[in-house]
Nucleic acid binder design. Structure first.
Lengths: 313, 313
DNA sequence: GATGCTTACGATACCCGTAAAGATA
DNA sequence: TATCTTTACGGGTATCGTAAGCATC
C-alpha cells in the first residue's frame, strides 16, 4: 500500500471510474493507474471496484468503507504538508476562500484589504461558487474558508461561525408606487413582478418562506445570482427587487430606491465555515478573526475539532 | 512522503530516539532509517527531531504536531488492512483481548469457550497485563478489546461498556474468629493483617477508599496481582484476604471461607473497552456481545465513534 | 470504430543494506 | 573506547510510460 494507490482510489471514485481520466488528473499513465488498483486489490485481498468485464462501474461494499478511510488518510497527508508550511514559512503561502458573489462584492473587500496589508506574501485565492459548491470545496479540501448565508451551517462536517447579520430590502425604480405604501406588506409587493436571487442563494430560502407562511403568491419573474444583476433589471423596469440591503449603494444606484423591509423577511446570518479536521495556516485564523473579531484561533480550533459527528467506521 | 517514513517517525518517538533500535524494530538498516528521516525533513522543510550534534533527543514543536497526524494515518492504514480481512475472510483472523488475571481466570472462560465454538478459525490471543498496560495496548492498537475494572473507563480515547458488577469479599482460614463477627465491620477486619490486590488492580482503589472514608487504618501486609496468590497466603495464615468474591470456589477452597462484605465495600464494575476509531472485525463485536448480551454491533459502533473528544489538530 | 482496460516490457528512479567516516558520551 | 549517526556507494526492486492486445459500447 502506498500513497499513489490511495490517491488513485480516491480519484477513481471522483472521476466516475474512468481510469483514463484518473491518469490525466494525476499526471501519470492510465496503465499505471490500472496496475496500481490491481496491486492494491491483490494486497488487500478484496475487490474495491465493481467491474463489468473490463469496465469499472462503481465501488463494492468493502470499497465504500475503504474510501472513507482513504479520504481521511489523504486529508491527513495534506494536513501534514500544510502543517510543515506553517512552520517553515509562517507568513508565506496560499489561502483559498470560496464565497458567493454577495459576500465577495459587499462584505469581504474591507476584510481582504486589511488582510493583504498584514500578510502581503500570502497568495489569496478568492473563488466564487454556489453555496453547494462552497460546501463541496470545503469538504474536498480545495478551499480553506467558505463564506455564505446558505448551506454551510447545515453540514455536520463543517464548523460554522456567524460572520454578520443582515436583512433583505426592497429595491424599486425611483418614484415607484410602493414608496408610498405604509406600511409595506407582502401583499403590496406581490402586486408587482419580483426579481430576486436564485434558489439556494443569499437567503432566497427565507424569502420564499416568508411569502409561503403569509399565504401570499409571489410572482418571481426572474432570479439572478447577484444583486448587481437584480439592480440592472429593476432599473430596466422589469419589476421590483428583493435583495440584501447592504448591496444597495445610494451614491451609485441613483435611479433606484431602497425600501426597508426588515419587518417582512427574517434576519439572515452569513456564516464562515471550515471543514472540521482541516489544518489551517496561522494566517487563515487571522483572516477569520478579521471577519469577526471575537473569533480567535483558540475558539475556532476548538469548534473545528473533528469531534462530535464523524462518520462511523 | 511514504509509509515507511511515517512508520519510522512513529517508531523513533516510541523508542526514545535511538535510530539503531528503530532499524531493528522495523527490520531494516539503521542507515536507511537515518536517510528516511532526513528525506522527509527535507521534503517538508522542517526539522522533526531535536538534535544535539548527531544525537536525536526529542521532537521539535512541529514534530509533535506531526506525530499526532502520523499516528492517525498509520492507525487508519491498519484499519484498512483489518477492513480488508473482514471482507476477504469473514470468520478467520486474529482477536487480541487483553485483561487482568481476575477476568481471565474467573469471568472470561465461559465467554471464550462459547466464542471458540462459534468462531473456531479465529486465533484468540489472550494477553495479561495491568490496567495501565491494557489501556496502552488499546491505544497503540496492539489489542482489540480490553477488559478490566480499573483505568479503562477513565480514558477519553477509549469507549467503555459495563461487563458485569461484583463485590469484594473477605476470605479467611476456616474457623477464623471473624466468622463469628456480626455484623462484620472494617474495624474488625483491621485487627488482622490484610492481603489484597496491588494498587491499581481489581478494585483496590475502592478498598483503600472504603477504609480511608471510615477513618480506619488497614494493615495491608501483602499485595498480589491475583486472587489465587491471595488465597495461597491466607491459607498459610499470613492474614485475611480481601478479593473479588467471584474468585472464591467453595468446592476447591476447602481450607478457606468466604464472608460476605458487600456492605463494606462499594460495588465494582468491570468494563469492556475498545479504542475509538479502531476498526473491529465482525467477530470482535460478537465477542463483546457474548460478554454482555445487550451490546450489539450497532450500539458498540455508535459509542466508539472517534467523535466526542479527539485531540485538537 | 471509438473508447477504455489490461498486460507486456524496457528504462528509470527509488529504496535498501554494507561499509567507512565522523560525532558523542 | 564504545555507541550512535551520517554519508557514500552498489545492487536490487518497484514504479512508470510506451505500446500492443482486447473488451465494451
Amino acid at each position: 500500500m502506498n500513497f499513489q494507490q490511495l490517491r488513485i482510489i480516491r480519484e477513481t471514485a471522483r472521476r466516475n471510474f474512468n481510469l483514463t481520466e484518473v491518469g490525466n488528473a494525476l499526471f501519470t499513465s492510465q496503465s499505471g493507474v490500472s496496475k496500481h488498483i490491481k496491486d492494491l486489490e491483490d494486497e488487500l485481498g478484496i475487490e474495491v471496484f465493481v467491474r463489468k468485464g473490463k469496465r469499472l462501474l462503481g465501488l463494492t461494499d468493502p470499497g465504500k468503507e475503504l474510501l472513507i478511510l482513504v479520504e481521511r488518510m489523504l486529508h491527513d497527508a495534506r494536513n501534514i504538508k500544510t502543517l510543515a508550511e506553517q512552520y517553515s514559512q509562517r507568513d508565506v503561502g496560499h489561502l483559498t476562500v470560496v464565497t458567493t458573489h454577495t459576500q465577495a462584492r459587499y462584505a469581504l473587500p474591507a476584510v481582504i484589504a486589511e488582510f493583504k496589508k498584514i500578510f502581503p506574501k500570502v497568495h489569496l485565492k478568492l473563488h466564487q461558487g454556489s453555496p453547494q459548491e462552497i460546501v463541496q470545496m470545503l469538504l474536498e479540501g480545495e478551499a480553506d474558508i467558505g463564506i455564505a448565508t446558505e448551506a454551510i451551517a447545515d453540514v455536520g462536517e463543517i464548523a460554522s461561525f456567524p460572520f454578520y447579520h443582515w436583512h433583505h430590502g426592497l429595491v424599486v425604480p425611483s418614484g415607484h408606487a410602493l414608496l408610498e405604501q405604509y406600511p409595506l406588506t407582502l401583499e403590496a409587493i406581490s402586486d408587482y413582478p419580483i426579481i430576486t436571487y436564485h434558489e439556494g442563494f443569499t437567503g432566497r430560502t427565507r424569502i420564499d418562506k416568508a411569502f409561503a407562511e403569509a399565504g401570499v403568491a409571489a410572482d418571481i419573474v426572474m432570479s439572478a445570482l447577484d444583486a448587481d444583476v437584480i439592480k440592472t433589471y429593476v432599473e430596466l423596469g422589469l419589476g421590483v427587487g428583493i435583495m440584501a440591503s447592504v448591496a444597495f449603494n445610494p451614491q451609485r444606484d441613483t435611479h433606484l430606491q431602497l425600501i426597508d423591509s426588515r419587518h417582512l423577511f427574517p434576519e439572515n446570518v452569513t456564516n464562515i465555515g471550515i471543514r472540521k479536521g482541516h489544518y489551517l495556516r496561522g494566517y487563515a485564523y487571522r483572516f477569520i478573526e478579521l471577519c469577526s473579531p471575537g473569533l480567535d484561533e483558540a475558539a475556532v480550533r476548538h469548534a473545528s475539532n473533528p469531534s462530535k459527528d464523524r462518520d462511523e467506521l
